Computed example of a mutant assay.
Amino acid sequence: MGKDLTQEWLGEIQGLKQQLAELQNARNEAWESAEKWRKLYNTEAEQRRTDNQLAQQAIASLNGQLQKIKGIDDKTLPDADTSSAIHAEVIQLQSVEELQTKLIAATKERDRLLLALKTEQEEHAKTRTNLTTALGDAIDGMKQRS
C-alpha cells in the first residue's frame, strides 16, 4: 500500500509539474503578446504625435502665408481691432483643410483686388492720356486763333 501511495503522489507531482509548465508557457505567451501590443501601441502613438506635430507646423506655415498674402502685419494694419479680429478668425480654424480653404479664398480675393487695381490703373492712364490730348488740342486751337 505504501508503494501505491508513493506512486500516486509521484503521479500527482508529475501532473502538477506538467500543469506548472503549461501555465508558465501560457504566461510567457501572454507576456510576449502583451509586449507585441505594447510596441504596436507605442509605434502608433509616436506616429500620431509626429502627424500632429507636422499638422501644427503646416498650420503655422499656412497662417504665415495667409498673413503674408493678406499683407497682415503691424505696419500695414495699425488698427489693433482689425488685427485682433483677423487673429481671432485664424485661431478658430481647427484643421489644415479649413486653413487651406481660407487661404484659397484669401488668394482669390487678393487676385480679384489686384485685377481691380490693375483695371483702375489702366483707366487712370487712359484718362490722363485723354486729358493730356484734350489739353494739347485746346492749346493748339488757341494758337490757331491767335
Rank of each mutant, 00 (worst) to 15 (best):
K39A: 14
E120I: 12
T43W: 09
S83P: 00
T82I: 12
L113Q: 13
T43M: 11
A34Y: 12
E44W: 09
L99D: 00
K39W: 02
G64F: 10
D73E: 03
R27D: 14
K68W: 07
K102Q: 05
L77D: 06
Q19P: 07
L20Q: 11
A21D: 15
E98Y: 10
H87A: 14
K39S: 13
L103M: 10
N28V: 06
R48H: 05
E35H: 11
A58R: 15
Q121W: 01
E98M: 03
A55V: 04
E89H: 07
R38P: 02
K68S: 12
I69F: 05
K126E: 05
K36V: 05
S61P: 01
R112N: 15
A34V: 12
A105C: 00
D73K: 02
N130V: 04
S83E: 09
W37V: 15
D74I: 13
T76Q: 06
L23Y: 04
L23D: 13
N130L: 14
A45L: 09
R128P: 06
T132S: 14
T127Y: 08
L23K: 01
I104R: 11
K108T: 06
P78L: 03
E22S: 01
A125Q: 12
A60P: 07
A80Y: 11
S83W: 03
Q19W: 02
Y41I: 11
K75G: 09
T76E: 00
I91H: 02
L54K: 08
L131T: 05
Q24T: 09
E32W: 11
R128I: 11
A26S: 13
N63I: 10
D74L: 13
A85K: 14
W31T: 15
E29M: 03
L99C: 11
A88M: 13
L113M: 06
N25W: 11
A45N: 04
A55T: 13
A45C: 06
K118A: 14
I59D: 05
K118S: 15
G64V: 03
Q92W: 04
E109I: 10
D51I: 00
D51T: 04
L103S: 07
Q92Y: 02
I86C: 13
N63C: 13
I72G: 01
E98H: 10
A116L: 08
I69R: 05
D51V: 01
I72L: 10
Q65N: 03
L99R: 06
E120W: 10
N130M: 13
E22M: 05
R110D: 07
S83A: 10
I86R: 06
E120Y: 14
L131R: 11
Q94H: 06
E97L: 05
T129V: 09
Q94Y: 01
T132G: 00
L115C: 04
L77P: 05
N42Y: 08
D81I: 12
R48C: 01
D111C: 08
E109Y: 03
L16G: 05
N130G: 09
I86A: 14
E22G: 07
W37I: 15
